[in-house]
């Protein structure tokens, strides 16, 4: 399937491994990513704090370009980009006057026919292919799925999953053969763009997330947002206390790539600050079995995430 691809600035910078892993997993999952020609910044973090018009016009421009280039959906792997694109589309749909202004500003029609899609949504739509082609199921790997704040909220904008109790990331992780753990901070904020301005807050928030994932018994955290990744991975040295082990933070696409049998380098796993080598070796050691059996699908996280031992009972409610 042909999908418009909007990498956004972070995928060309700090989150290159997201770009690389996504491009690597696309062909086996039957996706053709077509990068939108002449895309520009989505305006995340700065535009909507300074100008409402700009914060709508910038994403609208990219959506309009995608539309002109013949796409009906646009994959924005960065959660912030996705949120901006979806919010702009929502704002225009709710405000006819704004819609007119936006067309004036863009100097091109903006029929808003292109649906923004996020990383989780696109991967979840391909679970059958993923199950079929997961030649190296990540059996035994316990993963804490971290949604962050931008992916599923606000609910009227990002309506692909339940805003308070989403399941889609867990479904993807289950399809890779790994086991999603039940934990509670999966929707909390990591501190996001305050990484530089108020590092203290980010450390406090991200540490709580890390601690919770660890106490739930996770071997790794899966994310779908470059900002979350940056706060949890790049900053993790500042988060862990003395003697604590570090916890690898992987993009969902990287986990999927591992399950599909792609090698670590292709997936950009060498670019992480927290060493992923041990985890990759573990994945490689897992039996390159036949493609996952088309068994009953353990879709709901509640079912998949029964506390493994009584010791983990403290985390059963999510």
């Amino acid at each position: 399937m042909r999908v418009g691809y909007y990498p956004g600035c972070s995928l060309h910078g700090t989150a290159r491994e997201l770009d690389e892993s996504l491009r690597a997993v696309a062909p086996p999952l039957g996706l053709e990513l077509v990068e939108v020609n002449d895309w520009s910044c989505c305006g995340a973090t700065s535009a909507h704090a300074t100008s409402h018009l700009l914060s709508v016009a910038l994403p609208a421009r990219n959506l309009a370009l995608a539309e002109e280039q013949g796409h009906d959906q646009l994959l924005a792997p960065c959660a912030a980009c996705y949120n901006r694109l979806a919010s702009a589309r929502h704002a225009v749909a709710c405000d006819a006057a704004l819609a007119e202004t936006i067309e004036d500003v863009l100097g091109r029609p903006f029929p808003s026919t292109v649906a923004p899609r996020n990383l989780v949504e696109v991967l979840r739509a391909r679970l059958d292919l993923l199950r079929e082609r997961a030649v190296r199921p990540l059996t035994g790997l316990k993963v804490a799925c971290y949604y962050g704040c931008l992916l599923v909220r606000p609910s009227e904008v990002c309506s692909f999953d339940d805003p308070e109790d989403p399941v889609s990331m867990e479904e993807v992780v289950t399809a890779t053969g790994a086991t999603p753990v039940a934990w509670r901070r999966r929707l909390d904020c990591c501190g996001g763009a305050f990484s530089v301005a108020r590092t203290g807050s980010v450390v406090r928030l991200s540490r709580a997330i890390l601690d919770d994932a660890r106490s739930a018994g996770a071997d790794a955290i899966a994310v779908a947002c470059p900002m979350c990744h940056s706060n949890l991975d790049f900053r993790q040295k500042a988060l862990v206390r003395r003697g604590e082990a570090e916890l690898p933070v992987l993009y969902l696409s990287e986990l999927v790539g591992l399950a599909l049998g792609l090698d670590a380098e292709t997936l950009g796993l060498g670019r992480h600050f927290v060493d992923t080598k041990a985890l990759v070796e573990r994945a490689l050691a897992s039996k390159p079995g036949p493609a996952a059996k088309p068994g009953p699908r353990p879709s709901a996280p509640a079912a998949a995430a029964k506390p493994a031992s009584p010791a983990a009972a403290g985390t059963e409610a999510v």
Binding site: D162, D165, A302, E316, A317, V318
Partner: peptide
């Protein structure tokens, strides 16, 4: 909970009813 008797209704999975 998640299981709802009618379309258009949604539950509160985050309140742990039925699991706690």
């Amino acid at each position: 909970g998640k299981d709802q008797p009618a379309a258009g209704l949604k539950g509160y999975g985050e309140y742990g009813y039925g699991t706690v």
